[in-house]
Design a protein around this nucleic acid. Structure first.
Lengths: 221, 221
DNA sequence: TCAAATCCTGACCAAATGGTCAAGTTTTAA
DNA sequence: TTAAAACTTGACCATTTGGTCAGGATTTGA
């Protein structure tokens, strides 16, 4: 029995060269799509970024739309994998703190992924609507139910749990999507530094924990 | 003396027709740029949206880049005008509440303006960097100084005032830029309703006021 | 070793795109 | 009334774009 028959059709045809090139192209594509959106990105620009002739991009992905789809699927998978760990029996403070930290790490390490996703949302999410209406909606329902449970158990102050989650995303992702704005306003000519991400993480965490009554308020002077 | 000589060169040549057409074109352009970014937008699409032949767009604006510039300038002016009213002697609670409300009204009423701006920021803000580094930076410095003053006077709890402002923007603008996401997750098939914006406004206000110690924490159950 | 499979890519194409222009129509102001 | 100014737009153009393809190079597996 051929070992390869255990792999999906996709993986079967992936030799070393194929895998390397696909990775290279997708990385380049993520960058170009992030900076220009789907319509604004050109296959020529992606090819140059990847250091390959344009025809090579089409050899592996066929069309620009399919390449974009592949990049988007990759990002959705990344998103979902980062969404796992909030459980009912965890400690509210630690859970929220860890979650904010995890989202901020993504913003810092995969800003282009966040930007591609943002571009897609601004455009009205034509290609990921079903993901939003299913997986993401379910995730929100599940996690906000856990927050509500914590609230009902008196483990944290009453909050609008759905909006709390939305606003955590908004605050964490702004540091990836709109980095240019914050760098300019903060006077960081070479882009944001790790310290900036730490300061932002602390500010968001403080905000969320105070809102949830999980952090003692400092006494006013 | 000609009455028109009191006007800027720009305004001098603006008869009724000119003004109407420019308005129409810019409105259409804002929509198309919002949905596609600068590179992805086509003059043909803008022309169709405006209900005018393409050559007419070029008659008034010359090039796509100049039209984009005009749209962007319009939005920056709108942003700046909404940024005015935070004064040192105002009441912290009222001021923050009003400011959040004003930003949310902009998100609700001018989502395309917000989206064009967001597109520009995602792309690295090549055309508005000087605005970010000057007017906006100054505004942040000025307003965060006022917050710090309030804190020093014991009128609100200590917070990272700069990040607080950044995060208010992030939370309020997400309701314009990523409306598609929130509508999908909330199951609003025809887009967000006014009630959704009100709920978001309340959630953000609660969050900010609790963070600043300006709203009594509800007792835990 | 060697043939099949995979990979590579310059040259090419049709369609789309930003922009121009000339010839006309409408508006304005004296 | 009338001539200048402003406006309109179909037809057109050079460039860019996504995509194709044939023929050759390299890798793979038995």
């Amino acid at each position: 029995m051929n070992i390869k028959s255990d792999l999906t059709p996709d993986e079967q045809s992936q030799g070393r060269i194929r895998q390397e090139n696909i990775e290279r192209i997708m990385k380049a594509a993520e960058k170009v799509f992030a900076a220009n959106g789907f319509r604004g990105a050109t296959t020529a620009a992606i090819a140059e970024e990847a250091g390959l002739p344009k025809a090579n991009i089409h050899y592996y992905f066929g069309t620009k739309a399919k390449l974009y789809r592949a990049v988007l699927d990759d990002i959705v998978a990344l998103w979902l994998s980062s969404f796992r760990d909030i459980g009912e029996h965890d400690d509210p403070e630690k859970t929220l703190t860890d979650y904010i930290r995890a989202k901020m790490d993504l913003s810092q390490n995969r800003p282009n992924a966040s930007k591609v996703f943002a571009n897609e949302l601004i455009r009205g999410a034509p290609r990921i609507n079903s993901y939003l209406r299913t997986e993401l909606k379910d995730w929100v329902a599940e996690k906000s139910a856990i927050l509500d449970h914590w609230i009902a158990d008196g483990r944290m102050a009453p909050v609008d749990s759905e909006r709390l989650l939305f606003h955590i995303w908004a605050m964490t992702q702004t540091w990836a999507d709109f980095e240019a704005q914050w760098a300019a306003v903060l006077g960081r000519k070479d882009g944001l530094k790790p310290a900036d991400f730490n300061a932002a993480t602390d500010a968001i965490t403080t905000m969320v924990l105070r809102t949830c009554g999980l952090m003692p308020m400092p006494s006013r002077r």
